[in-house]
């Protein structure tokens, strides 16, 4: 039996009514595949995984997989994840968000989760657009691009998600693409294993909304764009600013050990209980 079939049998829900909500050619399935491969490779018990999401196309991911799954409200998935992790620290809590979900309505929660450094893994599917609501601009829509709410071209500059979260104080930040699928599960695996807050930004495509509005071609064309514009962090270090002009880096962007919220709170408990005696 090929590995994929085995993983489908083991991790997808048999009682869930398929088909899924994603458009043909969407990158969400590739990301879900990478997530499942990483969890499988790490050998975690499914009972110990909690997959939390917000609202949007990518946030429909949890419903299909046989973990503890929580589909919350728009932008606030990390807040629910915080409560879960503090209540049951042994659980592996993974949070799936889109770029609108994580960066616009949920931007505040994201930077605070990064700063707080609780043991959570955030995965942000960045397709530069609001897909589910029909192609409105998001905080990562590039300047000059078109969306249904910027019909005369977008006049705001985009957030760089990974750099923002490095600045917010996260211990681990990585970026991948759905084109580099084999690299993706390695990055997710590292992120899940990393103590503290970890983020994986996944560059993906919405050929149905963003692609059509901006003449970016099919999903295949858009994945080729990912291939042509992604440079590994290691390779980027040897390139000039001029050469990196329209490129983005993929790989591990930051990896550092910082005090972890849960460990620190254990010390708080000890201090509080000592003061009682």
């Amino acid at each position: 039996m090929p590995l994929t079939t085995h993983l489908v049998h083991q991790y997808l829900r048999h009682d869930k009514k398929f088909p899924h909500v994603w458009c043909p050619g969407c990158g969400n399935g590739i990301a879900l595949g990478a997530l499942i491969r990483s969890i499988h490779h790490l050998g975690y018990n499914r009972d110990d995984i909690v997959l939390v999401s917000g609202i949007g196309c990518s946030s429909r991911m949890p419903v299909y997989v046989d973990f503890n799954t929580l589909h919350t409200v728009h932008g606030r998935a990390l807040t629910f994840a915080t409560g879960i992790k503090l209540a049951r620290p042994h659980l592996k809590v993974i949070v799936i968000m889109g770029d609108g979900d994580a960066m616009a309505i949920g931007g505040n929660h994201l930077i605070h989760a990064a700063r707080r450094n609780l043991n959570l893994t955030a995965i942000i599917m960045n397709n530069n657009i609001y897909g589910m609501t029909g192609g409105q601009h998001s905080p990562t829509t590039p300047y000059g691009m078109r969306s249904t709410t910027s019909p005369y071209n977008h006049i705001e500059r985009a957030f760089n998600i990974s750099e923002l979260i490095v600045t917010a104080g996260a211990g681990f930040v990585a970026r991948g693409t759905v084109y580099h699928a084999e690299m993706l599960h390695v990055l997710i695996e590292k992120a899940i294993q990393k103590p503290g807050f970890s983020l994986v930004e996944i560059i993906t495509h919405c050929h149905i909304q963003y692609g059509k509005l901006n003449q970016k071609g099919t999903h295949i064309d858009m994945m080729k764009w990912q291939k042509d514009h992604a440079v590994t962090v290691e390779k980027a270090q040897k390139m000039t600013i001029e050469e990196l002009k329209d490129k983005f880096t993929i790989g591990v962007i930051t990896d550092q050990n910082l005090p972890i919220y849960y460990d620190e709170y254990e010390k708080v408990k000890q201090r509080a209980q000592l003061s009682e005696k």
């Binding site: 929580l70 879960i84 605070h112």
Partner: peptide
Amino acid sequence: PKLDGTFIQMEDEIASLGAVVGASLSGL
């Protein structure tokens, strides 16, 4: 913390209730 419970000050009230719901779903 004296009772082995958890207190957390969140970034706003929305986050506060989100964390409460997450903790309750996890049995507390």
